[in-house]
Amino acid sequence: MRNSLAHILALALKEFLALLRDKRSRIVIIVPPIVQLFVFGFAASYDLNEVPVAVYDEDRGGAARELLARIEGSPNFSVLQHIGSDAEIAPLIDGRRVLLVVHLGPRFSADLARGETAPLQVIIDGRNSNTAMTALNYLRSLVLDFNRAWQQAQGQTGPPVKLQMRAWYNENLQSQWFIVPGIVGSLMLVVTLLVTALSVAREREQGTFDQLLVTPLRPVEILIGKAIPGMVIGLLEATLIVALMTWFFDIPLRGSIPALYLGILLFLLATVGIGLMISAIALTQQQAILGAFLFIVPAVILSGFTTPIANMPEPVQWLTYLDPLRYFLVIVRGVTLEGDGFALLFHQFWPMALIGAITLAMAGWLFRHRMY
């Protein structure tokens, strides 16, 4: 028993010494956790500040101005635009310029003055159900405060303002409709990145990498050969997850399926490029796995998978443009919930293609300089 404990402690000490003697391992152990601490501390937040709001006030009476003053004075809302017709609502929601539209009818103040219940319509973007529910809770609290103040001032009973909600794209605000499409990208990222990141490191450990170098294959051919398995595996997994998403979870596919698969291929191209860069740098499988997960965790956090990008500090928002998962989540959620096609998703396609081209070029450069 005593000998076994001594052997375990000696092995643990050896592993610690091996990590501390390796300069790359020391950097990986110390620097990334500190960087991630600051990034996640700013980026990962479920609170909403300055939610973009448009106001459609057909009443313009005293009660309407009082309620709107409460909304404008709240730190949770930012009134960006006052509109004058129903036709202006759809472009604001479709273009993601506002999260919700507050509509006060022409008899809002008159109904309150007579002691009747006045409806307050709220049209909200339901694509992100978590954000929508949080914003609705903020607005519901404001309406309750307004009701209490109005009752005290007028000596009335019963709720004077009744909130009527209408959600677009995700009518019942089902969280699965928002989360499950995002899982498609997250799982593809994990599987594809690990497959490609381990490819060269595994051969280095097994001693077969030197044999690969003496073959007639050029570095670019080796690069392509290493990229194909990751893309094929990722494509098959994406197909399986999309099928389960529609059949098992009953999530609609309202948009163009060819546009979705073009997004999948471009996302796989970018992910494979990043994985091959990690694989070219890593000398062991342990370093490759650690490098892959050090990219995966920030990529998921910064993609908008759980928390809205608009709620992150501006420097962190700029950092998200380097994350291919950010663009793919817009594509998969646009196809499933919004019915998007090629034209509407073009601005998500080309950034992933650019990231894939740059990362594959960098991986090829690293292969050429580390092979010989």
Rank of each mutant, 00 (worst) to 15 (best):
E88F: 10
Q287E: 07
Y169S: 05
I123L: 13
W150M: 11
I296P: 04
D59F: 15
S141A: 10
F367K: 00
T192A: 09
D111V: 04
T196F: 07
I289A: 14
V35E: 00
K226S: 05
G62I: 09
A343L: 11
P219S: 03
R148K: 06
A282M: 12
F349M: 08
Q174N: 14
L80P: 05
P52S: 08
P313F: 08
I93R: 01
Y138P: 00
Q36S: 09
L240Q: 05
F16N: 12
L19A: 14
N3V: 09
L20W: 14
F342N: 02
A310H: 02
L139N: 01
T320F: 00
Q152L: 15
P181Y: 07
S78W: 13
M1K: 06
A87M: 04
I71E: 01
L80F: 08
N76E: 10
A282K: 08
H369G: 02
V184E: 11
V143P: 05
I183E: 04
R370P: 02
R96S: 15
R96T: 15
I296C: 11
I93C: 02
A288C: 06
G182Y: 05
A243I: 14
G105E: 12
D111W: 06
R140I: 04
R60W: 12
D94C: 00
G255D: 11
I71K: 01
H347W: 12
P298F: 07
Q176Y: 12
Q348C: 13
I251L: 15
I8K: 12
R96G: 13
R333C: 04
M245R: 03
N172D: 12
G341R: 08
V98S: 09
V53S: 07
A270I: 00
Q176T: 14
A243D: 08
P52H: 07
L260V: 10
Y321R: 14
F248E: 11
I358V: 15
P181E: 08
L265S: 09
V51K: 05
I34W: 00
I30S: 05
K226I: 08
Y169I: 06
N147H: 01
L5A: 13
L319I: 11
F42T: 01
F40H: 04
T208F: 06
P308M: 02
N130Q: 13
S256T: 15
G84Y: 12
G158N: 06
A201M: 07
P324L: 13
L217T: 02
W168T: 13
A12L: 02
N49T: 13
